[in-house]
């Protein structure tokens, strides 16, 4: 049987209704530091789940607990129906973990490295070249790992997570070192994997990426989950304000303040920014006053929601500790 990693259905025993990950009250403390402080959520099979948050929010610790690299101090962790801790050699081949971009067997070529990883997972040898092609490294197959560029190393690390066709993938900032073309190419690979029924747990600092790819995102701050929902619902729930950007040479601040429905007007560089709760009448008024040519409309993005949540969290933290 030949298997295509992008189209084969999710293998595995059990019913599809069984969630991929179930966390209940998970805690992990390092001395006085509460790295993970009571996290509970469920990731469904086939879900593309984003884990967002500033550095030090506890994302890495939480991911490592799910991967079975760390033991939770308290709470329960079920990954594909079983506990990942202690090391469970039956569970491991069903998980794919993106490695650090330094974690390559020295002095091997890209293909030799990936073939070694495939053998460690007992994956079929044909998967090696297929996976290299999938991440766009077919031409670099014979290049020593030490001679790969940053982006190529990152793609090889991602290939190490995919080569054995796992059911559940953990990807940690997979696009961090990629140029825009490679980033978009990886998005396509990830969407194909999701289309084939894979579950993906994803961390990133690119909020546009989370918005474009993830079914749901959890925003972490100070070891806790501050928000958890689909990107669209998070954005809709956070703010209803719309911003209109009008070229400054066609509208003065004084004129702007007199327009209907403007809650705030400010000059930012060469544009006047109008904030409103009701963009319809305001747009009509702007058309009459300044014309619509060059006018841009901005609604809230996931980044706005993220910044609001993480800043509110750190502000409240400061006020309680001071």
């Amino acid at each position: 049987m030949t298997k295509e990693p992008t189209v084969s259905p999710t293998p595995g025993p059990g019913d599809d209704a069984q969630p991929a990950v179930v966390l209940t009250g998970v805690r992990k403390h390092y001395g006085a530091t509460r790295a993970v402080d009571g996290v509970s959520f469920t990731i469904a099979r086939g879900e593309f789940f984003g884990l967002l948050g500033p550095n030090g929010a506890g994302k890495t610790t939480l991911i490592e607990i799910m991967e079975g690299l760390r033991e939770a101090d308290a709470g329960t962790v079920a990954v594909l129906g079983t506990s990942p801790w202690p090391r469970d050699r039956a569970l491991l081949p069903r998980l794919g973990v993106q490695t650090q971009s330094s974690a390559f067997f020295v002095r091997l070529t890209a293909r030799e490295h990936l073939a070694t990883v495939a053998a460690l997972y007992r994956a079929e040898p044909a998967a090696v070249d297929r996976t290299l092609a999938l991440v766009g490294l077919a031409e670099q197959a014979g290049t020593r790992v030490e001679d790969l560029s940053g982006g190529q190393r990152q793609r090889l690390a991602i290939a190490s997570a995919l080569v054995h066709d796992p059911e559940l993938l953990f990807l940690d900032e997979p696009t961090a070192a990629l140029d825009p073309q490679a980033r978009r190419a990886l998005w396509r690979v990830l969407r194909d994997l999701k289309g084939a029924g894979r579950t993906i747990v994803y961390t990133t600092h690119h909020l546009d990426e989370a918005e474009a790819l993830c079914d749901r995102v959890a925003i972490m701050a100070e070891g806790r989950v501050s928000a958890l929902d689909s990107p669209n619902r998070l954005i809709a729930g956070a703010t209803s304000a719309t911003r209109l950007l009008v070229p400054a040479e066609r509208l003065t601040l004084a004129q702007a303040s007199d327009l209907p429905g403007v809650s705030r007007a400010s000059l930012e560089g060469d544009v006047v920014v109008l904030e409103t709760e009701d963009p319809g009448p305001l747009l009509a008024a702007v058309e009459r006053t300044a014309g619509l040519h060059g006018v841009q409309t901005r609604t809230a993005t996931l980044e706005d929601v993220y910044l609001t949540i993480t800043e509110a969290r750190s502000t409240s933290e400061r006020s309680t500790t001071s």
Binding site: R87, R89, L92, L95, V97, A103, F104, L120, S160
Partner: peptide, 18 residues
């Protein structure tokens, strides 16, 4: 030492390798 520092042992740890 080098396998542990470069996370190669971590990679092996995540495979079913004894």
């Amino acid at each position: 030492m080098q396998w542990r520092r470069d996370d190669i042992l971590r990679l092996i740890r995540m495979t079913p390798t004894p």
